[in-house]
């Protein structure tokens, strides 16, 4: 995976106090912040998985679409981050619905073999990535400085960036909103029913096609939020979507299809990555991610919160 720039290294840990402790606190904050961005992506992916039971590999594409819309809006229309962010959320959500209509619905209506959906999603992820390679070019782009990255002193113990705190707070807000949507609204109830059994939900009078569109819109919008924060953290480029692998891994660690699992898994992954980067080596962090995946699958294969997937015969 290409990684540019890297995460900001501890800048002022040498100032006072125990440098080891300061690094620890700093990396924990960074880890939670990164983990919360993974959570936004992983939750959308998990939501789609819980309803349609296939891994949507085009999910990374939604993230890239969100990032580029935000970039274009900021650069050409010169509007504030709030408008640009809203535009990017809606745009990525619409792109997700379009992807579902074009590529998945025709397959879904004909067969229930999820393998075909999986392959189509892989194709869509290649298509989206390469549309941006051709249209926007493969260059790395930096978002205009709309999100403050000024250092914030944390109770005199450690210094962290305002950006990390902001991304953590926005992730909490969006995940809270999703939780409210799922638990309090009629469509939320329908989605929970569909996650239990899509066919039965359809028989109970839920408009399945509209429900799936809503699920994809929500997933795309959440991915766009993640995309904006990731493009501030790592700059924006067409292959940024490859970072979704981490979110997939997080979803597996938490249990495929489980939303709380996706959040917890993402936080674990973010912390593990940042602590590895801070105390061992920056190059080892992707290996740590994969080792966590293998260990989870060996010890508790269904993940932390997963439903048991092997049916008793």
């Amino acid at each position: 995976m290409t990684r540019v720039g890297g995460d900001r290294l501890p800048s002022s840990i040498r100032e006072r106090g125990d440098p080891y402790l300061a690094t620890l606190i700093q990396q924990i904050i960074n880890g939670l912040s990164l983990g919360s961005v993974y959570a936004l992506i992983a939750v959308g992916y998990s939501l789609v998985y819980s309803v349609l039971l296939f891994s949507n590999f085009a999910h990374g594409g939604f993230l890239v679409i969100g990032g580029y819309i935000c970039y274009a809006a900021l650069r050409t229309f010169n509007i504030g981050i709030w408008m640009a962010g809203a535009l990017s959320l809606v745009g990525a959500g619409a792109a997700a619905i379009l992807t579902e209509r074009l590529a998945y619905r025709p397959i879904r209506e004909r067969t229930n073999v999820t393998l075909y959906l999986l392959i189509a999603s892989m194709g869509m992820s290649i298509v989206i990535e390469n549309i941006f390679v051709i249209v926007a070019g493969g260059r790395f782009r930096a978002l205009p400085p709309v999100i403050p990255t000024t250092p914030v002193n944390f109770f005199g113990l450690a210094t962290t960036s305002a950006f990390d705190l902001l991304s953590l707070v926005s992730a909490v807000v969006f995940l809270g909103a999703l939780q409210l949507f799922l638990s309090k609204t009629r469509w939320g109830l329908a989605i929970r029913a569909a996650a239990y059994d899509l066919r039965t939900a359809g028989l109970m009078g839920v408009n399945v096609n509209r429900l799936i569109s809503i699920v994809f819109f929500v997933a795309g919008a959440l991915a766009a939020v993640g995309g904006i924060f990731l493009s501030v953290r790592y700059t924006l480029y067409p292959q940024l979507g490859a970072i979704t692998i981490k979110a997939f891994v997080a979803a597996v660690i938490g249990g495929l299809g489980s939303l709380p699992g996706a959040v917890v898994g993402s936080l674990i992954l973010g912390l593990a990555e940042m602590l590895t980067a801070g105390f061992i080596s920056s190059q080892m962090r992707d290996l740590v991610v994969f080792s966590l995946l293998v260990v989870t699958l060996l010890v508790k294969p269904t993940g932390l919160f997963g439903k048991s997937v092997s049916e008793k015969v």
Binding site: L53, S55, F248, V252, V289, L293, V294, P301, S310
Partner: peptide, 19 residues
Amino acid sequence: PTLRLMGDYYAIASIGLGE
């Protein structure tokens, strides 16, 4: 560990493995 489970576990593990 991955193939005892039905679902996309192997697919995701295989991406991680490749990387």
